[in-house]
């Protein structure tokens, strides 16, 4: 996983509550049995103009199509970002597009975990601080870049704002060090083996036979 320490980038505000993962990437944009190449489907319903269900070009008014925000790597949003479907494609589409962090007033539980698994930083801030960051960025998106410092858990908006944030310590450790989360857990392989053996003894009713049942 790509490590995240300090990142400075253009920040695009998409100030809506409850942006669900169907908006982040509609199911019809998940075209291949693959984790890659999904950036083109990011916000597909909003980013393109359509004739019926055919794409006919970019929707110029959408924030990520505006020249000032085209190279955005941070998003600002409202409450409950990434709610809905568990599709990790939403995170893969964001990272493929170049997004490194999202600052919002809460996240969908599955989406938040998916972010942590892919080096995408999900930061919770209260509404008033997000509004302050939005005003700062919108004043001049290309020069008013936000700096996110995961080492010190701070979001900096030039010399105008500096907000502390907290994230799950487990996620933070993985992100700072760019660790593979499966390898991390496999260091406890012996604990898992011991637990599984005791569990199977104690709750034998819960254990399936080694060979699948066949009707």
């Amino acid at each position: 996983m790509k490590a995240f320490t300090v990142h400075r980038g253009v920040t695009a505000p998409i100030m809506q509550d409850n942006i669900d993962t169907d908006q982040l990437i509609p199911s019809r944009e998940m075209k291949r049995v693959s984790k890659s190449g999904l950036g083109a489907g990011l916000f597909a319903g909003w980013r393109y103009r359509y004739d019926g269900s055919q794409k006919i070009g970019p929707a110029d008014e959408f924030v990520l199509n505006q020249p000032a925000y085209r190279d955005a790597s941070i998003l600002l949003s409202g409450r409950n970002f990434g709610c809905g479907s568990s599709r990790e494609h939403a995170v893969w589409a964001l990272t493929d597009f170049g997004i490194r962090a999202i600052i919002a007033e809460g996240f969908g539980a599955i989406f938040r975990m998916n972010c942590g698994r892919n080096g995408l930083l999900a930061i919770d801030l209260p509404a008033d601080q997000i509004t302050a960051l939005q005003r700062f960025c919108e004043a001049d998106p290309q020069t008013h870049r936000l700096t996110i410092d995961l080492k010190n858990n701070r979001v900096e908006a030039g010399d105008q704002h500096s907000f502390a944030f907290s994230i799950d310590e487990a996620d933070r450790h993985m992100l700072l060090n760019g660790l593979d989360f499966i390898d991390f857990s496999l260091q406890f392989r012996d604990d898992i083996d011991r637990f599984a053996e005791a569990y199977r003894h104690q709750h034998s009713w819960a254990v399936l036979p080694a060979t699948p049942v066949d009707d």
Partner: peptide, 9 residues
């Protein structure tokens, strides 16, 4: 409910 990576995990 989980994502694909957690499913691999």
């Amino acid at each position: 409910g989980i994502g694909t990576s957690n499913c691999e995990h």
